[in-house]
């Protein structure tokens, strides 16, 4: 069976029948967006991966109780968002560590914890320029409030509509619009020196 052609709802239905391949397809579809969203909230590569793992475990073990009349992606992102926020609340963390995990003990661990983006076909010059721009954007995003980070990541990086972001974050639509508008204005100021 070609799982790639099926919708999320169809994959979920197969997973509920106990097909492991369907579970793995759901992970394949959402591992990158979920990890990216959590990373932009917690700013620690290793911790983000642990929290993404926890989010998937929660969602996949609760599939039999999932209501298919809602979008699977909304549910997945909602759990990921809440898991990351719980972590931030517990640890009182909201800091920037773009250059690697603050918990890394050795240089190798630090290198392993640094953001590793998916690089497409780029020349070395483009790679360097994009990496610098990407790092500046990540730094600017890190300076935003966590709720702004979620909203801006979901709108721009994941192309989610305002309504879905409101569902994911559990706030009214107008609040999401305000978050995104303010976040963009702050980012514009933070990135003004780049003349992007």
């Amino acid at each position: 069976m070609d799982y790639k052609r099926l919708t999320d709802q169809q994959i979920v239905a197969l997973a509920r029948e106990g097909r492991e391949a369907a579970f793995r397809e759901l992970i394949a579809r959402y591992e990158r967006p979920v990890l990216s969203l959590i990373y932009r909230l917690v700013r620690d590569r290793e911790k983000a991966e642990d929290l993404a793992q926890d989010s998937f475990i929660k969602v996949l073990n609760a599939l039999d109780r999932y209501d298919p009349s809602y979008k699977f992606s909304s549910w997945m992102f909602k759990i990921a968002h809440n898991t990351a926020l719980d972590h931030l609340r517990k640890k009182g963390l909201d800091t920037l560590s773009l250059d690697g995990s603050p918990h890394a003990a050795t240089a190798d661990e630090t290198a392993a914890s640094v953001l590793t983006a998916i690089s497409e076909d780029e020349t070395p010059e483009e790679y360097t320029a994009n990496r610098e721009l990407g790092a500046e954007i990540e730094r600017a995003i890190a300076r935003l409030r966590p709720e702004y980070r979620t909203a801006i990541t979901l709108w721009h990086a994941e192309a989610r509509p305002y309504e879905e972001i409101a569902e994911i974050m559990g706030v009214p639509l107008g609040t999401v619009k305000t978050y995104i508008h303010r976040a963009r204005n702050e980012l514009k100021q933070h990135l003004a020196h780049l003349r992007i």
């Binding site: 990216s36 991966e49 990407g134 801006i152 990541t153 192309a159 963009r184 992007i196």
Partner: peptide, 15 residues
């Protein structure tokens, strides 16, 4: 420019 930069934010690859 801001929209283009934000839309090109990379996705992380899990280990």
């Amino acid at each position: 420019g801001l929209f283009a930069a934000l839309s090109s934010m990379p996705q992380l690859e899990p280990s």
